[in-house]
Nucleic acid binder design. Structure first.
Lengths: 179, 179
DNA sequence: TTATAATTTCAGTAATTCCTGAAATTACAA
DNA sequence: TTGTAATTTCAGGAATTACTGAAATTATAA
């Protein structure tokens, strides 16, 4: 399979950004290729398009599947496995948030909950304990909020985001009506 | 300087998480130490607390300053430089969002804007171009929204987050009143 | 200034992560 | 089943990133 110069630029950019996003250059490239390719493609297509080893592509596809960013599928009359990046970009966005949270936030939240299980007030650790508690509270609040947002329908979410800071006027209105 | 077992657990956790967060183990540890330490400390304190080389601590502090996560300061009558993690956790949270965006999102947004500068409809790249455009739109929308949220006062932001999905009721109410 | 304390730079090495090719395993058609 | 295509595993090497100690630089007190 070959790649147009236009696709190539995009693929190389994703490769370079990979290290900042916590994936390797080749995993970034594989995802980028799938993202700009409409039809499902197989591992050998990826090998020929990107010039990677077959085993590297196999491992890369496994990693992308573990991120739920790539879906495997079978074409009738062909025993090879084909792959595709899901179409719905909003869904991709949600998936990314969920997976990054699972990898980058949840382990720390567990650690904090565990460390704060029993009170140690009055010890030399009082300040540290207070700082850990603050951190736990902020993480709990923001992950709970993210959970809530994930429940919203896409249309509602878009409306909210477009509203931007204007949402605070609604809040004010609400309090006004309430009081 | 020495560290209590309670602090130690927290520091080691941050060290291990570092690689997932895009920093090295030692940078993670240095930040964790500063985060749980109330008084400003100097580089040698960090060396003795964590057992790192002096030069590594120097580079780590530089990196944390580039993230704006650590503030240098001077104590009267002492020519050494002291460091402190800012107190306000909400501010830290905002800083993290800004810096990660700068490193992880902005370069891609530039690339997309550039790639989409001139229309190429009708070419073999039609699908790729459409996918790039979708990606650009989503990123523009969400970064603009983040900008808006960053403008809100902390109290308002907390209220909003606690409201969670309930915000959609406000939205509904707004449309109802408007129509 | 000069002396010295404090910090940074940087070349070399250690540690880690990434990637490949060969071998092993799995899946499927005949 | 058997044979072969497709995929995965994994040991070893390549590439990258992290860390150290020594030397250079910078800052400050005398």
């Amino acid at each position: 399979m070959n790649v147009t110069p236009y696709q190539q630029d995009f693929i190389l950019h994703f490769g370079e950004m990979g290290s900042r996003w916590g994936i390797s250059r080749t995993v970034g490239q594989i995802y980028a290729l799938l993202y700009v390719t409409e039809a499902p493609i197989n591992a050998d297509d990826i090998v020929s398009a990107l010039g990677l080893s077959r085993s590297n592509v196999s491992m890369g596809l496994k990693e992308l599947q573990s991120w739920r960013l790539v879906k495997p599928q079978h074409l009738p009359g062909d025993r090879r496995e084909y792959f595709k990046a899901p179409d719905d970009l909003w869904q991709i966005f949600r998936t990314l948030i969920e997976e990054r949270r699972k990898r980058e936030v949840d382990p720390t939240l567990s650690m904090l909950r565990n460390a704060l299980m029993n009170n140690r007030t009055g010890t030399a650790d009082a300040y540290a304990e207070q700082r850990l508690r603050e951190m736990q509270e902020l993480i709990e609040l923001s992950t709970q909020w993210l959970d809530d947002m994930q429940q919203l329908e896409q249309r509602t979410a878009v409306k909210l985001m477009k509203l931007g800071g204007g949402v605070s006027k609604l809040l004010a209105g609400k309090s006004a009506r309430r009081s």
